[in-house]
Amino acid sequence: MPHECTDCGRAFDDGSKEMLSGCPDCGGNTFQFRPDGDGQANEAATPPEPPEPEGNSTVARTVGSAATVVRDLVGADDSPEYPTQESTPTAASSRDGPPETSGSSSDSSHIAAESAAHEDAAQASARSEVVSPEDLPETAPSQTRESTAAETADQQSREDRPDLEELREQLNEQFESIRVVAPGQYELNLMELYDREEYIIALQEDGKYTIQVPERWSE
């Protein structure tokens, strides 16, 4: 049982809404997270998310499969610092997500995806923080525990990385495979180039590039 009332010891299923309005047995409002002994419980607690931050490259590939072969990624931003080789505009926007989507916190699925990279923080927060009784709604809300945790993570990530430049730098380091420093000057992330399924076959002066996608993507 992932959750246990610290007063009476009653157990709750993962994602249970009962505990949101306090323990039905004793009224207690502190709960302890008890994994089932291995990573299984952790995984079950976050079904919509990949287990590791590295999952992002998979997300990029998945999104990439729906995209076209030639992508224009620099049009919106002429800065040479811009991550011109992000896999797709969609993937880029979801990665740039935390600082830019502060207004869309009601989109829980979007947040769930964003929180992938902050899973640990979200889980830690969900386990350690206790909601005070007055903050609890009269009836159990339809939101699941996961989305609440994700919001916390979203907020945390906003606080942790207020500087967009810094964030971009971080994203460059993590995801970019070829950075165009200036025409004729490139920095390559070998690990990222090695990891990606599609492969860059032609760079162009304006930062556009052509990739070859695996055959199975067109199936």
Binding site: I178, G184, L188, L193, Y194, Y199, I200, I201, L203
Partner: peptide, 17 residues
Amino acid sequence: AVRRSREATEGVAEAMH
């Protein structure tokens, strides 16, 4: 030189692939 540089970068991507 710029063209060689661009082609070399493509070449590294190809080698890694």
